[in-house]
């Protein structure tokens, strides 16, 4: 323990003995008191340091801006994003079912017309048909062809509608990826929060992570905009894109 400046050293002990041998009681007492005070100073400093660390840690715990931002903005934002996913998937399901429901009667209609023609048609194919019946068959076949010509473009359009309704997967996929990212961030921050009670160095790392750059900077990909009507930095649709581009000389 002789390497600690605050402990009683051999020199001090010898000095103390010398003072006592010389009968200098008052100076000997003074020397002892000095040594004692120096030891106490160290204790007070250590307690002071501990108190400050605890205070800082508690302070950080309460006001870490990243945590506050997550609670106030990111979590409600994640809720809105997930609600948006529900809305988009519901919309896609309805669009698909609407198109399918509009397609089915067209298919049924074609089938019925063909069924109506088939008996006379089969007789024609087996060379067993009267002239009158042949004439009415011609009208029926004409009816089938016209119906087919009318229905098929409609079916094609409805099929394209079904195809386009699947675009929800891309949009919702992007949104869900962002929510997953947020969950990871929350997890990371909670771990860092625990580290605040650990070593000072770990606390500094947590602070560094907390000052991550703002992701809403211009030019950084943000994914689908779920609240376009409440923001003025985004376009509201293709028409606004076209207007913006033509204003740039496009």
């Amino acid at each position: 323990m002789s390497d600690n400046a605050h402990d009683l050293s051999l020199e001090q002990a010898k000095e103390l003995v010398a003072l006592l041998e010389d009968g200098k009681q008052q100076q000997a007492n003074q020397l002892l008191e000095d040594v004692y005070n120096r030891r106490n100073d160290k204790l007070f400093t250590s307690v002071g340091q501990l108190t400050r660390d605890l205070h800082d840690a508690l302070q950080d715990f309460q006001v870490d801006p990243r945590i506050v931002q997550m609670m106030e903005d990111d979590l409600p934002d994640a809720q809105n994003r997930l609600l948006y996913v529900i809305e988009k998937t519901e919309d896609a399901a309805n669009r698909t079912m609407d198109a399918v429901e509009a397609c089915l009667p067209l298919a049924d209609d074609m089938q019925q017309r063909v069924e109506k023609v088939m008996p006379a048609w089969n007789r024609l194919m087996s060379n067993d048909i009267e002239l009158n019946e042949f004439k009415s068959l011609c009208h029926q076949v004409d009816d089938v062809l016209k119906g087919c010509g009318e229905n098929m473009p409609q079916v094609h359009g409805l099929m394209t509608e079904v195809l386009m309704a699947q675009d929800f997967q891309d949009i919702t996929g992007q949104v869900i990826r962002r929510v997953i990212q947020l969950v990871e961030d929350v997890e990371k921050n909670l771990i860092e929060l625990l580290k605040i009670f650990g070593k000072e160095e770990e606390r500094r790392n947590a602070e560094k992570a907390a000052s991550a750059p703002d992701e809403k900077e211009a030019g950084v990909a943000e994914g689908p905009i779920i609240d376009a009507d409440q923001r003025n930095d985004v376009v509201g649709g293709q028409d606004e894109v076209d207007d913006l581009l033509s204003s740039l000389g496009f």
């Binding site: 990909a221 994914g223 905009i225 985004v234 293709q238």
Partner: peptide
């Protein structure tokens, strides 16, 4: 799906020939 004005301008400046925002239609 990127619909920020800055981004559209950025793409235009980088030399894009056309810009469509999702969701879009076959007609667009």
């Amino acid at each position: 799906a990127e619909a920020k004005r800055e981004q559209i301008i950025m793409a235009a400046q980088a030399g894009v020939n056309g810009y469509i925002v999702k969701p879009f239609t076959a007609v667009t």
